[in-house]
Design a protein around this nucleic acid. Structure first.
Lengths: 153, 153
DNA sequence: GCGTAGTAGTTGATTTTGTAACTAACAATA
DNA sequence: TATTGTTAGTTACAAAATCAACTACTACGC
């Protein structure tokens, strides 16, 4: 059958879905998140949003919900709900700012610190495992490109 | 704001959240999907799942829901619902397979073809725009690495 | 002070996803 | 033919994401 009658552009066009960067990025992101997701889910009953908040606090110390939202590019309602659940489970504590009583400072509890350190170890191992597929130069370039695409300047 | 004042291990440890590949991949995927998402959402009221189904049919011609699910790594319920909505909006038609009446063949309608061609054009332009940040060698390497990470062998 | 505008964070309604159970059909086999 | 197992796709219900409206507060202008 003449393919060209029904889809004239398809043959002439070099565009391939499998090369479309947003598609590829999403596939890679989903696949690479999966194994790690199992860990924080099964080990601590956390969602991705909660893990991100935990990691930001563990990594950078005391932060407000707003700061976390900016850094992690999470919407404030996502952050709010993640913080709520982490507070319920005693992974963090909230303290109102004395100067500006709208905002509150978030700190990990010892339990939160422990979970953070545990998960950070898992994350580091997993990252190394992912990077092993490539040379260190390739990985460095990949990270730089991803940072650029993510708009992290 | 305040950086790593409070965290003693953070300095000793070379692990950085901002370098964690699943995190970076997710950020890049989300950010790079955003602008394109606006197009298929605003122009055709489609969700990401629907766009993916549309693209697969436009790209590869007649397929079953199962085949789309395998190619796009979408769960069958996602595919099922996307197909349902695309059928309601008359972007595709379903025909039962005569030999195996469990499965059905999906084909784009003329309206579906039109939407597909339109969106493919947008996607191609957008892809080129994204790739312009890098050399063609870098982009080729990026695509190869993403494919590997996505488990597409 | 008082009024207005803006911000940090929360809540509620709606939409979308995820998980499991389900229907209908096929296949093999006794 | 009946039995058991498997598969394509759907549906129901719970979990989660999204968006808009909301509360409590701060800051500015008068």
């Amino acid at each position: 059958m003449t393919e060209n009658l029904t889809k004239p552009d398809a043959a002439e066009d070099d565009f391939e879905l499998a090369n479309f960067l947003p598609f590829l990025l999403n596939q890679a992101a989903e696949e690479s998140s999966l194994a790690f997701q199992q860990v924080y889910k099964n080990r601590y009953g956390m969602l991705r949003t909660e893990w991100r908040v935990l990691f930001h606090l563990g990594m950078y110390g005391q932060m407000t919900a707003k700061e976390i939202g900016q850094r992690a590019k999470m919407h404030k309602t996502k952050v709010s709900r993640a913080v709520q659940r982490l507070a319920e489970r005693r992974f963090l504590v909230r303290t109102r700012d004395a100067q500006d009583r709208r905002s509150e400072h978030l700190d990990l509890t010892p339990a939160g610190e422990t979970a953070y350190r545990d998960l950070r170890g898992v994350a580091r191992d997993y990252d190394i495992k992912l990077a092993r597929h490539f040379t260190s130069g390739e990985v460095a370039l990949l990270r730089a490109m991803l940072r650029q695409l993510a708009g992290i300047r």
